[in-house]
Write a protein that binds this DNA or RNA. Structure first.
Length: 479
RNA sequence: CGAGGCGUGGCGCAGUUUGGUAGCGCACCUGGUUUGGGACCAGGGGGCCGCAGGUUCGAAUCCUGUCGCCUCGACCA
């Protein structure tokens, strides 16, 4: 946002002044969350939860479309079960919460509060999968998980968060790989179509991959401050978990085989991404497709004869097709304008005495603040068109911002310079050696975000060590 | 978790150095006038100063602990 643009909402710190404070202000002022008395845990308030419900609805629809079924697993995992897969337990044990007592009784075996449910799904799969006819198993679960994080921020990193975790079992390695990529594409499509957030699809390096996975794929998005956010991951486990948990089936060949598994997840972190990709100094900016309120009707001079009645009539009409709110409180119109801009409502509809006389209403876009007068006769159509336009404008703006903040580094000096001054994604070649990854992180605090599917041959040398390069990698500082 | 900064009505702050009746602006409530970008006038309510201990005749102020927020590291979705 331009610096000279008038700051409409006094209470929100300007983005350019202090991005972290801006984020916190929005989260609080738009009433997405309240802080709870429990460290690192947030109260998700109605407006924030409504966004999550819309995310759930759309994602769940896509999961069902691709043949998945929802299940529910216990929230406790016995220690012995968690420990069955070595890499997995090593990766998660530092951030696991333990239940040691039931009432006053000390438990024979500690129970961990699930940080993720691979082990539970595996245990269950070992029970129910016997034949190739039982495959594939395409399960998903919506739940909460707990990870004992050291520093927390609303939505971006909390000790307890909401997510979905898909867990699938397949007869062959090829099917598992296809599933892993299919769900990554579902995620990417969801982000772009529903959240208007463009993502880079790629594979994680071994250093960054999920504990226990053979391969981790990721979608990475770029926030307004130039930091990257891992927005969804999809893992191919190969048959590693199957071997640890003994998940075997009899094939058509009458031989025993291990299944091949995947898991994939998206979390309430996405709400943080929406805030940081789209928001501006006036507040939140919600993509129409997931906005809890798509248009707010604000009556002007509502005490005058017929205004409120007309506003109510419009609300009832439009509610047939859209998520509509009518604010007939006695706040001044100007206050309402700012309030709903701050809350990111995509479209504002003004209706006043002059409009009623002319059989019209005023539509105002959250993205451009442009006002248009439209006839009440085709209001539904105009609102629909404007919502579509805003959705597209938001995706375009986010894409433009990402492109502007994506750089190429051919030398290490250039790399360090970009990370330090400009930030954003840095595309650079890599030799494939973990030592270079570690060194880059130590020198710049940037990490490898992913090895994108769309590879480019920027040079033939690793940006760090100068040895022959194997992959182009997206690097950046991350949340 | 390590280093640094900050917690005073809902929000933003003053008061803390040097202990002595808790203040201001906005918000809130009531009445009236208003209403197309955060309206105006009048009256009113609300804070054991983040929380818990301690020192003191007396603590927002000094000491200890703890919780929360911000920045930078380490860890991660």
């Amino acid at each position: 946002m331009a610096k000279d643009e008038k700051k409409l909402v006094e209470e929100i710190t300007s983005m350019s002044e202090d991005f972290a404070q801006w984020y916190t202000d929005i989260v609080k002022k738009a009433k997405l969350v309240d802080y709870s008395g429990i460290r690192g845990c947030m109260v998700i308030q109605p407006y924030g939860y409504a966004i999550w419900e819309n995310i759930q609805k759309e994602l769940d629809r896509r999961f069902k479309e691709t043949g998945h079924e929802n299940v529910y697993m216990p929230m406790f995992i016995p220690e012995s079960l968690l420990q069955k897969e070595k890499d997995h337990v090593e990766g998660f044990s530092p951030e696991v919460a333990w239940v040691t007592h039931g009432g006053a009784e000390k438990l024979e075996e500690r129970l961990c509060v699930r940080p993720t449910s691979e082990t539970l799904f595996c245990d269950h799969y070992a029970n129910i999968i016997h034949s190739y006819r039982d495959l594939p198993k395409l399960y998903n679960q919506w739940c909460n998980v707990v990870r004992w994080e050291k520093t927390t921020r609303p939505f971006l990193r909390t000790m307890e968060f909401l997510w979905q975790e898909g867990h699938t079992a397949h007869a062959t390695a090829e099917e598992a790989e296809a599933e892993t990529l299919r769900m990554l594409n579902v995620y990417a499509d969801f982000c772009e179509q529903e959240l208007a957030i463009p993502v880079v699809k790629g594979r994680k390096t071994d250093k960054e991959k999920f504990a226990g996975a053979k391969a981790t794929y990721t979608i990475e998005s770029l926030m307004h401050d130039g930091k990257a956010l891992q927005s969804g991951t999809s893992h191919n486990f190969g048959d590693g978990f199957a071997q640890a948990f003994g998940i075997q089936y009899t094939g058509e060949d009458n031989e025993l085989h291990y299944v091949h598994q995947t898991s994939w997840g998206m979390t309430t972190r996405l709400i943080g991404a929406i805030i940081m990709v789209h928001g501006d100094d006036a507040g939140l900016k919600l993509p129409p497709r997931i906005a809890p309120v798509q248009a707010v009707i604000i009556p002007i001079a509502q005490h005058k004869e017929g205004v409120l009645e007309k506003a109510e009539e419009l609300r009832d009409r439009l509610s047939q097709k859209f998520r509509i709110k009518l604010d007939s409180s006695d706040k001044s119109p100007g206050w309402k304008f700012s309030e709903y801009e701050m809350k990111g409502v995509p479209v504002r509809i003004e209706i006043g005495p002059k409009d009623i006389e002319n059989n019209q209403a005023v539509l105002v876009s959250r993205t451009t603040r442009e006002k248009v007068f439209v006839s009440l006769d085709n209001l539904e159509e105009e609102v629909g068109k404007l919502l579509d336009k805003i959705q597209q404008e938001m995706l375009d703006a986010a894409l433009k911002n990402r492109e502007e903040k994506t750089s190429v580094a051919l030398s290490y000096d250039e790399f360090k310079e970009i990370v330090e001054t400009k930030g954003g994604f840095v595309k650079a070649m890599w030799c494939g050696n973990e030592e270079c990854e570690i060194r880059i992180k130590e020198d710049t605090s940037a990490t490898s975000r992913c090895m994108p599917f769309e590879q480019e041959q920027l040079s033939d040398k690793c940006v760090c060590c100068g040895k022959p390069a194997k992959k182009m990698v997206y690097w950046g500082k991350a949340y």
